[in-house]
């Protein structure tokens, strides 16, 4: 049985905004699945529907085999959720939050203390456990949020942009913890706007743009779809024409960039050594040589015509979130 099954999932808000537009996906048990897209693409709205916080206006979604609309209580029992912008009460202590979460998930009272201690130890917050959360760093808050989502040992874990705004060290710590959880058998559904995060963590990635999934597959297969590795070569003055001739023998030439010649290697990285030998045989002095693999951003560009970062800058806040705020006023 798949951990998450979604067919034609849709969410329209008042005012005609369609935040999620017919999403289909399936996440296998034990998989790390990443939902990649810029702000406003529909990632958070999708997570809110899958975690029963928002009712879909169309389609069907099942988590751990339970329909999110027909049996939301069963869904809630099987999932752990760490939402965007760690929803923590700054006046509570870390230990109080974990204990509260344990009570919400019906852990027997005699197990609450030991479970809280174990989770705080797991995320390295034992020393800070009795301090108020308001005094925690962003990374500590994220780790605490993650710990609180694990209190009932959920089968499926939803992480909505778990590392947004974190420094590289804190980000790496979260990644390691996510990988460890996955090794222990937890299915992870992760949304992110960071290419590197999706690339490093995910078994499979779905790229979402304007509420629709535009590409889905393993990071490697998605990258392979958009092209082959490129070799970027800078040579000493006086030899570029000759260099162009050599490079053309190994694959399709791409337009030069800032004086750097680029060739798409038809047989991939295996051709680096022959290229270097050929250049050397012709006496061409190479100043720099770099193999550039396609990235998920290239996939995003291929599918949407925009770079992920650029789309992020230009986009409005997530329609789901924005709409909620508007309606709340």
């Amino acid at each position: 049985m798949a951990a998450i099954e979604v067919e034609g999932l849709e969410r329209k808000f008042e005012g005609g905004i369609t935040a999620v537009d017919g999403v289909d996906l399936e996440v296998a048990d034990g998989e790390i699945f990443s939902f990649l897209g810029p702000n406003g693409a529909g990632k958070t709205t999708t997570v809110r529907m899958l975690t029963t916080l928002l009712r879909p206006t169309g389609g069907v979604a099942r988590v751990s085999g339970h329909n999110v609309v027909e049996d939301p209580a069963a869904v809630r029992r099987s999932i752990g959720v760490a939402l965007q912008e760690a929803a923590l009460d700054p006046l509570m202590t870390g230990r109080e939050l974990i204990r509260l979460q344990a009570t919400l998930h019906a852990l027997p009272p005699d197990q609450v203390t030991s479970r809280a201690d174990a989770l705080l130890r797991r995320v390295g917050l034992t020393d800070a456990a009795d301090r108020r959360i308001g005094g925690y760093s962003g990374g500590m808050q994220r780790r605490l949020d993650l710990a609180s989502a694990l209190v009932h040992e959920p089968r499926v874990l939803f992480l909505d942009e778990p590392t947004t705004g974190l420094d590289p060290v804190s980000r790496k710590t979260i990644w390691e913890e996510v990988e460890k959880l996955n090794d222990e058998g937890t299915t992870v559904f992760l949304t992110t706007q960071y290419l590197e995060e999706a690339d490093q963590l995910a078994d499979r990635v779905a790229i979402i743009s304007d509420g629709k999934i535009v590409a889905e597959g393993t990071p490697a297969s998605l990258k392979a779809e958009v092209g082959k590795p490129r070799l970027e070569v800078s040579v000493a003055e006086g030899t570029p024409a000759e260099c162009e001739d050599v490079l053309s023998e190994f694959g399709e030439r791409l337009p030069a960039k800032d004086g750097t010649m680029i060739v798409e290697l038809s047989r991939g990285a295996a051709e680096i050594a022959p290229v270097v030998r050929a250049l050397d045989e012709r006496g061409i002095l190479v100043e720099a040589l770099e193999l550039v693999e396609p990235t998920l951003d290239d996939v995003f560009v291929e599918k949407t015509g925009q770079h992920l970062e650029a789309a992020d800058d230009e986009s409005a806040p997530d329609p789901g979130t924005g709409e909620r705020e508007a309606l709340a006023e």
């Binding site: 975690t51 029963t52 916080l53 209580a73 809630r76 029992r77 999932i79 959720v81 939402l83 912008e85 929803a87 923590l88 009460d89 979460q101 919400l104 998930h105 019906a106 609180s148 709340a328």
Partner: peptide
């Protein structure tokens, strides 16, 4: 304040 900071989502996502 709980609603504004998303704390109620924590409660709504729990089986209570």
């Amino acid at each position: 304040v709980d609603i504004e900071m998303g704390f109620t989502d924590r409660l709504l996502a729990a089986p209570i």
